[in-house]
Amino acid sequence: MSPISGMTGFGRADGALDGWTWTVEARSVNGRSLEVRYRGPGGFDNLERLTKAAAQGRLNRGQVTLGVQAKRAEGSEPAPRVNEAVLANYLKLANQLAEEGAVPPSADGLLALRGVIEVAEEVEDLEAHAAVEAAIAATIEQALDALKLSRQREGEQLTPVIRDFVGTIEALVARAELEASSQTEAIRERFTRRISELAPDAPGLEERIFLEAAALATKADVREELDRLTAHVDSARTLLQQPPAGRKLDFLMQEFMREANTLCSKSATTPLTGIGLELKAVIEQLREQVQNVE
């Protein structure tokens, strides 16, 4: 199993008890922090709190939506009955209106009137209700366990992709180091040629060229940026073994891009600039993958 997890996944579990049946489905997508949304049946007021606590105990990031669909088996619902007192009042009024020429009411019309049909309230056993609620809560935990497993499987797929991108960055940094080593000489040659063209007979030209070239080479020195990029590569590999790593990897991507931008701005040769641009493209691709990490 991969040490890191993704943030996209799905989990489902079913349950039944005392005439009740239910299905729990949990889904998650990417998110900067953990956000849990619950939808469930009425009458089970503790389930939302239990759901959020169970999710927080298993997950660190992502937008999680958990829904509970519950129903009672046929025959377990209380039977409807006619409220005869209310019906008698409606009939009395209807008869009075009929004597004045109104159309007599139909049976289905009377039954549709408010208060005529009612469902006798069933005194539910509180212990039985609590048992059903506890059983649903257990099923919620099963669905969240399945969701977590699904996210871990996504992590298994993400890990080699991220490692490949990190390896590509490492190779580009190595190329940049080779190219950067020739920057000082390239700057000196370019500066010498330019000064010679503008002032070939100026006194102290050789010393001036040396000083100016040294100053430009100092400004173009990218060794610190390359050292930091190498350190970031090592950090990325370490974080892949230290979950949850998503937030830290997000921050590390910013640091990667900062150094790549500085490398491009300091570059004094076209090849090094090209390496820097290629480096920025790979870092952006890596950042897209890191956004899926929990």
Rank of each mutant, 00 (worst) to 15 (best):
L158P: 00
V173L: 10
E156W: 06
L93C: 05
Y90A: 05
Q152K: 12
N95G: 12
A174K: 01
I117Y: 00
T159L: 13
E124M: 12
S150V: 09
E127G: 09
T168D: 01
A134G: 08
A94Q: 08
E141Y: 13
A120S: 07
L149K: 10
L93H: 15
L158M: 05
I187R: 02
Q152M: 11
F191N: 08
F165H: 12
A112F: 01
D145Q: 10
Q96Y: 07
P160M: 06
Q152L: 07
P104F: 02
A134W: 12
V161H: 05
E100K: 13
R193H: 13
V173H: 01
K92E: 13
E177F: 01
V123A: 12
G115I: 03
E154G: 01
A174P: 00
A102C: 03
R175N: 09
R190V: 09
E118F: 04
V103T: 15
I140P: 13
E124R: 15
L97K: 14
G167E: 12
S196I: 07
E156L: 08
E197K: 13
G115L: 03
Q183L: 10
R193Y: 14
Q152H: 09
L172H: 06
A128D: 10
G115T: 03
G155Q: 07
E133K: 03
L110H: 05
A186I: 05
S196E: 04
A107V: 15
A131F: 03
I162Y: 02
R151N: 08
A102F: 00
L111V: 06
V116D: 01
T192H: 15
K148Q: 14
L113N: 06
R188H: 11
A112R: 02
A180N: 00
F191P: 03
E154C: 06
E121L: 09
E156V: 09
E189H: 14
A138E: 15
A130L: 08
E122T: 06
E124Q: 15
N95T: 10
E154I: 09
E124V: 11
E189S: 12
A102P: 02
L126A: 15
E127F: 07
G167F: 14
A180V: 03
L93S: 15
A98W: 10
V119P: 02
E156T: 04
Q152T: 08
L111C: 03
L172G: 01
G167S: 10
T159H: 09
P105L: 08
E170Q: 14
Y90N: 09
Q157G: 00
E197W: 11
N95S: 12
A135M: 04
Q183M: 11
